[in-house]
Design a protein around this nucleic acid. Structure first.
Lengths: 369, 369
DNA sequence: CTGTTAGCGCCTTCAC
DNA sequence: GTGAAGGCGCTAACAG
């Protein structure tokens, strides 16, 4: 095959000091400044000097030391990214968007998962400041933002993604959650449903509050639900708001309870795809038919949304675009730290498919099979 | 709410020089070394000195500069991670595994997506070397590994993930692809199928070769298919090996062609979940029933595998574990660069569900609806 | 225990 | 165009 099968040393040679500009300069017979100029590609040097330096560099295998450069430039060409969990498709796609836009600008992405733990987020942000990241993109776990303020004050610009922080003056890229949620619930109401439930999956530690915790996104979506229900004249007592734990099992259990209770909802709106997954599990468990027994609309257009039968009506978010915009906003902010914070609200759109049907005339009782 | 609503400055103060150990020392009235010792938490200092330094540091808002530290220690406490695309669930989960194990050891993850482009991978690796990463974890896009050898030679240890590189002396974490594939195909064979097809999704640029390109994983899985077919005595002429492009549409098209051709396969084995998605799309498009018309086994246990009807029989990989092991292997290698390269082969397991059935006595002709 | 003094590798005046 | 020298912020010798 003619492939280069030379044995890799896998770092065992790493203890040997790596050549520096001084080494190159010495070997090329020029001053260190000259070597640095051609190696760093700035200033000017005579063609002869340039050639000599390049040759010497090649011979001894010189590689630039970006750490030393960062020390002088003050830039690391990296952005810190804080999300709950890249393992979740939504975040994975957002991170991909960030990565694309960042690398298009020569920035690398340093990724941290917090699992919505404020402590983990605080630690990550402070580490990012110490490491002199050029900037941060965060999906904040809670409303408290002193740590982000501190980062900004220390000269590390911050861009918020997915969630807004009341009272914080950062650039932010979000979608219009309230409107999108209201629109989805309205679709359900239009189909004649009255007992419409909203199921959210709250991060660990907050679900015990019986609320969605401090997650802005969820709060907004619930607000959208309430607005639509109110506008439709559904009495407050008929509203069904449930917060489950942040995983498929927990949402499945919550949905199971919801579906089998007396005066069960005939339609469910889930605020994220983890919850949607849980509801679908529960639906199958009680043998309910969608949309004959229950109608369903979920947030996020998962790859499997068109695979299940019936295909799911969903609220689609521009995930990749959200990430890309956040990165671009950060890049702008790095270039102009003094600019006024700007919020970009992207549109989420309702994608009609087949999981919404007319409310049943007579509500069939559901029970685990 | 009593929340701290102080205005964030978002980096506008970033132009102001950040305090250094020297500043702290001066203010605390101690020598720079003493200040450095308590701030850096090494050596020893008297309780009084310590207190004074800490107080001073707090007053002027000192933050350590990790870049300067890296310059001296030679360590950046970051690992470079090269994958094709975090947007794909498989990689996302693997990255999460890496991140968990890495952060447990104080290492941060710098993530790069290559979309299987060798050029992008080479650029990323060389950047990682310049940035003095403590180590690299790569899902290599092609068999060529000079760039990885160079990284190792420059003292940046490399760990291979998911794919082996013939002739390269790196630690590697992989699964037993060949065996897992053979086992899956065997299950199909056991159900009486003879015309069993294997569908792979090759990265862009390689599918034109009509092969899976240089992706080791795919090659192995095809080898497993062939081994099983051969062992079952299925004549070579009956084997059906198809390589589609690296996306859902391409695999859908390939599957469509497969399902509607004369003497179509009665069972399909897909080598990754993108391909599985494509096949499912095609199956629905031609109105085929699983497993009555076609049986199906796919690689990777996607979250939706139990959601579709029938539930999918799949080959499950320990994705998170693969990533975690890779990170741990790297950590060990960083500690002991001279150790002998070690390969860890994890087991993928066949998860039996309902997408495999007896081969139909009479093969129903399928056509797009 | 503490302070002084050198660098780490590079870029950047500043004279020449 | 080029070289010498200083310094980025920190740690690592050293003496004291």
């Amino acid at each position: 095959m003619g492939r280069n099968a030379r044995r890799a040393t896998n770092g065992s040679a790493g203890t040997r000091r790596r050549p520096t500009v001084a080494d190159v300069a010495r070997r090329a017979g020029v001053g260190q400044a000259t070597a640095a100029r051609v190696l760093g590609d700035y200033g000017s040097a005579s063609p002869e000097a340039r050639a000599a330096v390049l040759r010497a560099a090649g011979e001894i295998g010189y590689t630039a030391n970006a750490v030393a450069r960062s020390m002088i430039s003050g830039r690391t060409y990296s952005v810190g990214v804080v999300v709950a969990d890249v393992g979740i498709p939504y975040f994975a796609e957002v991170v991909r968007g960030i990565s694309d836009a960042a690398s298009a600008d020569g920035l690398q992405v340093v990724l941290v998962n917090t699992d919505e733990s404020p402590a983990a987020e605080i630690a990550a942000v402070s580490l990012f400041v110490e490491r002199r990241m050029d900037g941060l993109i965060a999906v904040p776990a809670e409303r408290e933002h002193e740590h982000l303020d501190a980062a900004a004050a220390a000269g590390v610009p911050v861009v918020l993604l997915d969630r807004l922080l009341p009272g914080a003056a950062f650039d932010a890229i979000v979608i219009n959650n309230r409107r999108a949620a209201a629109e989805a619930v309205q679709r359900l109401l239009d189909a004649g449903h009255r007992r419409v439930a909203i199921l959210t999956s709250a991060p660990p530690g907050t679900e015990r509050l019986g609320s969605a915790g401090d997650i802005w996104t969820t709060t907004e979506r619930v607000a959208g639900y309430e607005a639509a229900m109110r506008a439709a004249g559904v009495p407050n007592a008929e509203w069904i708001v449930r917060h489950a734990g942040y995983n498929r099992q927990a949402t499945r259990a919550a949905a199971l309870q919801l579906l089998t209770q007396a005066r069960r909802p005939t339609a469910i709106f889930t605020t994220d795809s983890v919850a949607t997954l849980g509801v679908l599990d529960a639906v199958q468990e009680v043998g309910a038919r969608i949309p004959a027994d229950v109608s369903l609309i979920g947030f996020d257009d998962a790859e499997w949304a068109t695979l299940v039968r019936p295909r799911l009506t969903v609220v689609r978010q521009p995930t990749h675009e959200l990430g890309a915009r956040a990165a671009r906003a950060l890049i702008r902010r790095i270039a102009d730290p003094a600019a006024r914070p700007r919020r970009q609200t992207l549109a989420a759109s309702l994608v009609d498919r087949e999981s919404v049907g007319r409310a049943p005339a007579r509500v069939r009782r559901l029970a685990p099979t």
